[in-house]
Every structure is written in C-alpha cells, then in structure tokens.
C-alpha cells in the first residue's frame, strides 16, 4: 500500500494556516519569543507560545471545556487536516484511525495536579485535572470530536516519535485495520519543561503547538516513500552517522531540518542540499515539531516536479533518531 499525505493541519506560533506559516518559514522571519517564569525561583525562559485565540473554536466544544491547551491544539490540527483532505469523516462509511504522538504530553495539568498533592497531601488532587494528565487524553478528545471508534493509539518518545507515528499509521493501513489514519502530534509549553532541559544546558527556545496529517492510499499528495522510524544512539557521532546514512538512502533534493540550536544539530552535519529549518521560527516543540517538519516537507513539495523528494531528519534528546522521506 502506498500511503499519501491527503491533508494537513498546523498549529504553530506563526499561525494556523499552513500556507502562510510556510511562507514565513521560507522568509525566515520570526517574532520575538515571550517568557515563562518558574514561580519558585523567578527564573524566566524565552518561549514561543501559541495565541490561544487561534484555537478558540475547539476550546468551546463541550468535550474540551475542561481540557488543557494540548488537547485544543491537537483537536484543532486534526480537524484542519480532515478539512484540508475534504474528508467527511463519517465512521459509518469509513474506518478512520488515530495515532497521536507526544513527548511531554499534558504537563501543565500534571504539574498543577501534583502541586495540590504535594502541598496538601495525597488525598487532595482535583478530579477535574487528573484525567487530563494521561498521555492519551488528547487522542481520546480527537476521537470523540471526530466520531472515530476504531483504533486510536498514543505513542510517547522523544522527537523521533513523530516519524514512528507515521510508521505506525502506515502499518495500520497496510494491516487493513483502517482505511485512512490521522497522525497528530501536540505539545504545550510550561516552565517545568524549560527548567528540566535547562539542567541539560541545551540552549534552544522551547515552544508548543501541533501538527496533523491525514494518511491514506489515494489522492495527489506526497507519498511517504521511506520511514526510518527510530534507531537508538549513544553519542552524537553515532546519531550523525545514522542520519547521514538515512539521508543518503533518501536521495532527497530538499531537507526539512530538525535543527534547533542545540548540540544535537551536529547530527545533520553530513546532509547536503537546500534546507528549511522550521524550528528556527517555531521553536522546539518535541514530537509536535517533528510533525511540523513532516507537514512542512509536504508543503515544500507542493508545486515541485513529480519525483522530487524531501527528507525529514529527526534527532531526539533522549537517544533515538528517525527520518522520513516524502516524494512529490
């Protein structure tokens, strides 16, 4: 089965409309980051946030009224991808699946829930917050809003999970478990994440957002030609060798880079060719960034001659690399 990207959705710090956000990536113009502050030590971190007004339409949905912004981003991206594909999404006539990918998941509600527990005791957590702390809450909301009752799965890992989610979706289609599969990744920004990686001295600007692609067998969208969905590495030199090998095998003319001003960028050093670097504008949003790269690659191939390839390298902060090649 040849899987194609039939539709995409993109919730980025630069906007929700994929075409205009991609124009900004090409132009290389980014707004100044805002700041998130750790209330315990008053330390501030530059962050690229999403204007929540951008997803107000989904935040008003009854199912999402009590959910965290990660679910708003995820559902908005998913609905945009379905709309982009012209998918009526009727579960009675079509078997749709969802693969949701995250690195940090619902960290805001998790922190708020634990704040209460830590201050007031194990008995003190809020029943409104806890259900939204589970990794698969956004996937569940996507399924409920879109009316999907088939396979809905959540994968968690470093940024490599974005590519693995595409692999899992392709497997579901190939196995006949669904006709088409919605792949969504989302993250939300919080000071706890900034503090966590500050301990690693990564030096990047963190962000939030979501991206979604609808994967299916037909249409004119780019083909998912090759997925190198995860390989563990123990040093940046090892990651560089693997990314170099994946890149060579891809025979791509365009690179949609995962570089985000960290030491891990060195893993892409052997890649050659025209390069777009969305994270320079969008910031580092882990799994969501990878789906944004993939969506970006699909946008980069629009209007390109048939057979043109775009390569998406991914180097996670927790020991796994992945890569994906799309063909126009």
């Amino acid at each position: 089965m040849i899987a194609r990207i039939q539709g995409l959705g993109w919730i980025t710090p630069l906007g929700r409309d994929p075409a205009s956000a991609w124009e900004a990536v090409q132009a290389g113009s980014a707004p100044e980051p805002t700041e998130l502050t750790n209330p315990f030590n008053a330390r501030s971190f530059p962050v690229r946030r999403i204007d929540t007004a951008m997803v107000a339409d989904v935040a008003r949905l009854p199912r999402l009224r009590r959910s965290s912004v990660i679910s708003h981003f995820a559902v908005a991206a998913a609905l945009d991808a379905l709309k982009d594909a012209g998918c009526g999404c009727n579960p009675l006539t079509e078997r749709l699946a969802v693969v949701f990918a995250a690195t940090n998941g619902g960290v805001i509600y998790t922190r708020r829930f634990f704040e209460d527990v830590s201050k007031s005791g194990t008995q003190a957590g809020s029943p409104l917050l806890f259900p939204e702390t589970v990794y698969n809450a956004p996937a569940s909301h996507i399924a409920a809003v879109a009316g999907i009752n088939g396979v809905v799965t959540t994968l968690v890992n470093d940024a490599s999970v974005g590519a693995d989610a595409i692999a899992a979706a392709s497997d579901l289609i190939d196995a006949g478990d669904c006709d088409r599969c919605l792949v969504v990744a989302a993250e939300e920004a919080d000071w706890a994440i900034c503090e966590a990686y500050a301990a690693w001295k990564l030096g990047t600007i963190f962000s939030e957002g979501a991206a979604a692609v609808l994967l299916g067998p037909g249409g004119n969208g780019p083909v998912v030609e090759r997925i190198d969905a995860g390989a563990a590495f123990r040093s940046i030199a090892e990651a560089r060798a693997m990314i170099g090998e994946f890149g060579m095998k891809s025979e791509a003319q365009i690179i949609v880079s995962g570089a985000s001003d960290t030491p891990f960028d060195e893993a892409e050093a052997d890649l050659r060719g025209p390069r777009f670097t969305p994270k320079k504008l969008f910031g580092e949003a882990f799994a969501a960034s990878t789906l944004m790269q993939i969506a970006g690659a699909a946008l980069a191939l629009r209007g390109q001659p048939t057979g043109t390839r775009a390569f998406v390298p991914v180097v996670g902060f927790h020991g796994q690399v992945a890569a994906l090649t799309l063909r126009a």
Binding site: T103, G105, V134, Y135, N136, A139, V152, T153, T154, L155, V156, N157, D158, V161, D164, A168, A229, G230, A231, A232, R234, H318, G319, Q320, A322
Partner: peptide, 24 residues
Amino acid sequence: VPQQPVHDAMSAFGFSAPVRIVSN
C-alpha cells in the same frame, strides 16, 4: 521520560533497537 527504563534495560544487555512506547 517513559522510554528511559527501556533504554536502561537495553544497555544492560548490550543491544539497541528502535523503541516504541505505547500509552493508551
């Protein structure tokens, strides 16, 4: 991070493979 226990176990036994963490 949820994949770390898996990476820890793999390193103990000297093998390496792509890791998928399922959280449903």
